[in-house]
Design a protein around this nucleic acid. Structure first.
Lengths: 233, 233
DNA sequence: TCAAAAGTAAACCGATTTGTTTACTTGCTG
DNA sequence: CAGCAAGTAAACAAATCGGTTTACTTTTGA
């Protein structure tokens, strides 16, 4: 069970007032994910949530308000799912990054995977509802921020760039999985490892032997060489 | 002007019968791209196409039939835009790949960029209309095929994997651009080059200096070393 | 205990949706 | 030039949309 599919039911221990609100959001989240936003009517949402339409419109005066709340829930749910992993101190940052991709690959491989909700929302509301656009932006910026925190104390020259490129991989894998609906044919861990290596170490492929020592010396004059990493071709 | 935004007007020299059809498809393509599928009504499409509703429903019995035709047009339009580039014999395959990403970066950087139409369509119709799903699948499989052709006579171990990973980059960059609406902060050519290098050459990062010649020799015992490539860190 | 708060169920509203039909006009071609 | 194919414009239909309102019931807390 991947993080994003694991919707924890902590409806207890929460102010009772907020329970109804959460019921609505969770039902709407499921329906929006599976059927899209425009295609999901409010009548169906209220029926699935077990809530009257009047109550719904007290908590969310418009459907778009509900959509914004669902996108915030989407992010908070993901954040909570990652919390334990990110807090572990027995894992290196590289291992945490790899774990994120392992989990994502598991999620994307689900036949029920319908793509990133924020991307889908942009496809339907870009240029039409600023609040929804903003919520999508916040989600994606948060994702980038997760990788930022994991790369900034890594020994790399441009941790921000590395974080962005990791997000590129994550989004790319997801988008393709959403459309092709086939198991990802590549070794994702290997791809991530290679990306990390290419940032963490000065990478040089050599041919033919013998390589002159002077060639290696002038790669980055005056700078210490980064760690040695071997990669299979 | 990127390939995907350049909608050639070859309405002349085409059977007059098909002109109306193309008018409808082009208008629908623009509206679906900018406003989404569900949110775009057929009345607006027919008005923008300068065509009566009756004519529209003769060419496309249902709105979803039109959507399928638009997705096919989306692919054919892209294919035609790439044709000249792919046919050039003064460019290496690596240069053609880089040119595709240059063009895509230009396209994604447009403030009017609304993401890949096939991905957006899946977000709205996944699990609801098999014909639309199929059209999206065909589009993405075609994109993968373009990279397949460009990598299979490259000197790499797993050209299919490389092609898939190139598509991952393309999709990832696009999805992030769609949501964040910010200029891509990374050096895309460098990222692509590094990916190609990592497949084309045995890559090894070295530290610390001096590196012993024997270290290099034992990388892959008995196998010839691949070509030398220097990459900036 | 009792009144306010919060919830339900369902009718209702006007606007909009896809899709159909009718009456009329244009344009090509034998 | 006659006639048919193909087009337009607009009214129309049935369903559904987001959202409101009304009448009634349940829950809750001082």
């Amino acid at each position: 069970m991947s993080i994003m599919r694991n919707m924890k039911n902590e409806n207890e221990a929460v102010p009772k007032k907020a329970i109804k609100r959460l019921q609505i959001i969770q039902a709407a989240f499921k329906l929006f994910t599976e059927n899209g936003f425009y295609a999901t009517g409010v009548d169906l949402i209220m029926r699935q949530a077990g809530v009257s339409k009047r109550t719904m419109y007290i908590y969310f005066p418009t459907k778009n308000d509900l959509i914004v709340a669902v996108l915030e829930f989407y992010r908070i749910n993901y954040e909570r799912g990652l919390k334990d992993l990110l807090a572990r101190n027995d894992l290196s940052n590289r291992e945490k990054i790899l774990a994120i991709f392992d989990d994502a690959a598991n999620w994307f491989g689900d036949a029920q995977f319908h793509g990133c909700l924020a991307v889908n929302a942009m496809g339907e509301f870009a240029g039409k509802d600023p609040a929804i656009e903003q919520a999508c932006h916040v989600f994606k910026a948060w994702e980038l921020g997760v990788f930022d925190k994991l790369t900034d104390d890594l020994q790399v020259n441009n941790p921000k760039d590395l974080a962005y490129e990791l997000l590129v991989l994550l989004e790319g894998i997801g988008a393709i999985a959403q459309v092709l609906k086939q198991p990802c044919p590549i070794d994702l861990r290997q791809m991530v490892n290679r990306l990390l290596d290419s940032h963490q170490a000065l990478t040089v492929a050599v041919w033919p032997l013998p390589v002159e020592q002077t060639t290696l010396n002038k790669l980055i004059p005056g700078q210490p060489m980064p760690p040695i990493v071997f990669q299979s071709p």
